[in-house]
Computed example of a mutant assay.
Amino acid sequence: MSRLADLPLRPELAGQEPYGAPQLDVPVRLNVNENPYPAPAAMRTELGAAIAEEAAGLNRYPDREAADLRADLAAYLGHGLTAANVWVANGSNEVMTQLLQAFGGPGRSLLTFPPTYSMYPEYARNTHTAMLHVPRRDDFSIDPDAAVAEIAERRPDVVLIASPNNPTGTATPSELIEAVLAAAPGLVIIDEAYAEFARPGTRSALELLPGHPRLVVSRTMSKAFGFAGGRLGYLAADPAVVDACRIVRLPYHLSALSQRAARVALRHSAELLGQVAALRAERDGLADWLTRAGLRVAESDANFVLFGTFTDRHAVWQGLLDRGVLVRETGPAGWLRVSAGTPQEMAAFRDALLEVARELDLPITDPRPSAEEAPR
């Protein structure tokens, strides 16, 4: 058998590792920001019937334009959007890749604001797009003056902002996005994968779409809809941007089963978004508990919390794993990220972290219950 190193691999891929957070069989998995709640029973029943019906036509190719699903997503998003404003793909990862295939490429550049989603450099690498960076401030917010100045100087073809940001959870104010739109010569993508988890009053970039034909808002059904296994991402933009994605998409890129399953999930959006409210409360309670325990906590509008800082974060990560709790070792040095889970999972995480703190002699205290957490 040959080795990877023996193959005529593209030079920039030499020594690279495939992306992927650990997928370990442990009791408490809080590392990839999944919705911990299974689909409601009524949704599962409807989904089973829909897939069985769809299976009768699997000998035919699916609707390559996914017209019905795009119309349903437009109705879900609101803001006067129609199917012509929406594009769909296999997760927001494929949405982003298609956007860079269309608007990035050799001789073109992508500007991002680290620390941010670790896949962004891989999207750029895979599409031969140069990467440019404007580091975030110590509180993980974006400096508007630095952003505008760098855009004016570097003239990136694509600007990409995650809001809420992964792995920090930081939301980007609409005013900053408007300033970026005014300065950017090319496409501006706002990655709103976690938008449904934002605190009340947090504005979506969807509000800015009218009058901004180069603005793209990317979303996913993986998080709020608990549809990670369904792999459905989408964007909202001017119809011309959708047409650009249609040029680079692979033929029949979204299966008939994926399209039908996503439409079923959308019909149950009220129930699923009820789970979002519960997870938002768990996130806020967790952030409060970690703060009172003496740790630094990044302000989060997502379904996770970044916390630290640790001299040896890997030892903390391993200690949690040894106790059956899997979190994510990602982001700036010294920080860990934990997803919001069920009340039982949050309790297991807190207990495990306190045990690890005692074992490693970390300055973490066991905070007394707050008024919200106290028994009633």
Rank of each mutant, 00 (worst) to 15 (best):
R292T: 02
F349E: 08
E372S: 03
Y194L: 13
A265P: 01
A357G: 10
L181W: 05
A52V: 08
S339M: 06
L111Y: 02
E329V: 07
A293H: 04
H79T: 01
L30Y: 09
E94N: 09
R154V: 10
L7H: 03
P114G: 14
R29W: 09
P18N: 14
W289I: 00
M221W: 03
R136C: 07
L100H: 07
S255D: 10
H133K: 07
S339D: 10
L77Q: 13
G230C: 05
L9D: 06
T291E: 12
I151Y: 00
A261V: 06
V28A: 15
G331W: 04
A55G: 11
A56P: 05
Y252D: 03
N93W: 01
L295P: 03
A14S: 13
T168D: 11
L81I: 05
R219N: 13
G294K: 10
D351C: 08
Y194W: 13
P210Y: 06
Q259D: 11
W335D: 12
P8Q: 02
F113D: 08
M1G: 15
A184W: 00
P18E: 14
R154F: 09
S339V: 09
A352Q: 06
P22I: 07
A315T: 04
L7Y: 02
A262I: 01
E34Y: 14
S300C: 07
A74T: 08
R231I: 09
V327P: 06
A262D: 10
T127C: 15
R108I: 12
A14F: 00
A236I: 02
E359W: 06
L353D: 01
L4I: 15
S300I: 03
G319V: 00
G319E: 03
E282N: 11
L208S: 11
M96K: 15
F307W: 08
F227D: 07
S218I: 09
E359A: 11
N59C: 11
P115K: 06
M221I: 11
